[in-house]
Simulated scan of single mutants.
Amino acid sequence: MRILSARPVFLSFIARRPQAQTTTRRLAAARNTNEASDEELQAARKWLNDLHAETIPKSIGEMSFSRSSGPGGQNVNKVNSKATLQVPLEGLLKYIPTALHSEIRTSRYIAPRSNNIIIQADDSRKQVDNAHSCYARLHQMVVEAGRNAVPGETSAEQSKRVKNLQKTENEYRLKSKKQHSAKKSSRRGQSYD
């Protein structure tokens, strides 16, 4: 397990996190519960692109080990190999962009009574591997929250394609309305005796 001593991206976000700014154009984030400005969304996208599992500081939470359960023979009875990572929610949220806060608060790893994130791993027989797995799951939780909370960027090609499709659909709609109108007007001109 490699521990980075340099100031990682995870911690450096605090210095450049944009404050809530008043702009006329607002975007609703995922599930329409969290509104974020364009600048906040851009900053969150950049932060998520720079985030790696190794950049999460090991001092962010408290790691404890206990005896595992399930198959494993004598090893699970004698060795404390199960890793449990407890991260205070407020301690984590100060490092994460505000656009992701609502998604993180709804994570399945949140313990509501203690307001902590609790992640457990007992996949391996080794403590080190299980501890690494806990941090990897924390990273995955943050990345998934980012996917759900921050909408993706639309490329210029995609937006042009959508405009062309909308234009074509509108032309087709107008053409079908004219055909329907012509059919109705042709019926009015006829008299049935």
Rank of each mutant, 00 (worst) to 15 (best):
R2G: 07
L4Y: 14
A6G: 08
A6F: 08
V9W: 09
R16D: 13
P18A: 07
T22M: 05
T22I: 08
R25E: 09
R25N: 06
L27S: 06
L27Q: 10
L27A: 11
A28T: 09
A28R: 13
A29Q: 01
T33P: 02
N34L: 11
E35N: 08
S37W: 03
Q42L: 14
A44K: 01
A44I: 02
R45V: 02
N49C: 03
D50A: 14
L51C: 05
H52N: 12
H52W: 10
H52Q: 14
E54D: 15
T55M: 01
I56T: 04
I56R: 02
P57W: 11
G61I: 01
E62M: 11
M63L: 15
F65S: 04
S69T: 12
G70L: 02
G73A: 02
G73R: 07
V76E: 11
N77W: 05
K78M: 04
S81T: 10
K82V: 00
K82P: 04
A83S: 12
P88E: 02
E90G: 09
E90A: 14
G91W: 12
L93E: 13
K94R: 15
Y95H: 15
I96S: 03
P97W: 06
A99H: 06
L100G: 11
E103K: 12
R105C: 06
T106R: 14
R108V: 15
R108S: 15
I110Q: 02
A111S: 10
P112N: 13
P112T: 13
S114I: 06
N116Y: 10
I117D: 03
I117F: 07
I118M: 10
I118Y: 05
I119P: 00
I119R: 00
A121H: 06
D123T: 08
R125I: 08
K126W: 11
K126E: 15
Q127C: 06
Q127V: 08
Q127I: 03
V128H: 12
A131V: 05
H132Q: 14
Y135A: 07
A136G: 08
L138E: 04
H139E: 03
H139Q: 00
M141C: 08
A145P: 10
G146E: 13
R147K: 15
R147G: 08
N148G: 11
N148L: 13
A149I: 01
V150R: 05
V150N: 12
V150E: 13
G152K: 14
E153K: 08
E153G: 04
T154Q: 09
T154S: 10
A156T: 04
E157S: 06
Q158P: 00
K160E: 14
K160S: 10
K160I: 06
R161V: 04
K163T: 09
T168S: 13
E169D: 03
N170M: 08
Y172G: 01
R173G: 01
R173W: 07
K175H: 01
K175Q: 12
S176N: 14
K178N: 12
A182K: 09
K184F: 02
S185Q: 15
G189Q: 13
D193M: 02
